[in-house]
């Protein structure tokens, strides 16, 4: 049974189809990369999967259960964790408290039990020294790490990463990729939207290419990158 299955999912903003009959499945434990030019509907696809946006048509199943009509908070509690492309920290709470919210609500843990796990996640994501700092005062890299740490604190079965490596330096990007690799190695299914292709391709098992809200290909990352259609879409972008 796939952990995530989309069947003919469609969404329109006015006359613009941002998701056009999208169907694909993600087996448990796989890492799927999603690429596509700006405006292809990648983040919209995440919003539809997490419930931040409602679908116009089609259905979404998570771990065999239809979640199409469930609210975002319910889907999170079931095990769908996400990061946002533009970091959305709880600015007046500390880094630790940001994680505590995710653990208490997303993973339904008591605060006392969650403390240990949150501390471990902070160490893993390189935020241990910032634990008691107010999230509003973090740098871009730290905010990106917080997005990841907070998603992990919900104890996800499926982790959706939205351009987590964007805007980072080469070195920062490398550290982040190592962390994501370790998370995936623990058996967490990962779906990762990314423009930084050299970060994405070594980690993912399959690659999905999205263009104008439509899936134009899904398969082995190397084959996808070499396909005619992808080269055409990414013309001018270094692969």
């Amino acid at each position: 049974m796939p952990i995530l299955a989309l069947d003919n999912v469609s969404k329109k903003f006015g006359a613009l189809a941002v998701a056009d009959r999208i169907s694909f499945e993600v087996p448990q434990g796989q890492a799927l990369g999603i690429i596509g030019p700006n405006g292809a509907g990648k983040s919209t696809l995440f919003n539809l999967v997490t419930g931040n946006l409602a679908v116009d048509a089609g259905s979404i199943a998570f771990a065999g259960q239809d979640v199409t009509r469930l609210r975002a908070m319910r889907r999170c509690a079931m095990g769908i964790g996400r990061t946002f492309q533009i970091p959305q920290p709880f600015g007046k709470l500390t880094v630790f408290e940001n994680l505590l919210v995710a653990a208490a609500f997303g993973a339904n843990e008591q605060e006392a039990d969650a403390t240990e796990r949150c501390a471990a996640i902070l160490e893993e994501t390189g935020l241990a020294r910032q634990a008691n700092r107010v999230a509003g005062s973090l740098s871009l890299l730290e905010r990106k790490r917080l997005e990841l740490a907070r998603a992990l604190a919900t104890d996800p079965k499926l982790l959706l990463l939205d351009e987590i490596a964007g805007g980072l330096t080469e070195g920062e990007c490398g550290q982040l990729v190592e962390t994501i690799r370790a998370i995936h190695a623990r058996g967490v299914t990962v779906i990762w939207i990314e423009h930084v292709l050299h970060a994405l391709t070594p980690v993912v098992d399959r690659l999905l290419v999205l263009h104008f809200g439509r899936v134009i290909g899904i398969g082995d990352p190397r084959e996808m990158m070499e396909s005619e259609a992808v080269r055409e879409i990414y013309l001018g972008i270094e692969i």
Partner: peptide
Amino acid sequence: DNELAAGALGV
């Protein structure tokens, strides 16, 4: 602080 993120984290 952020209702969108709170919802996505299960609040």
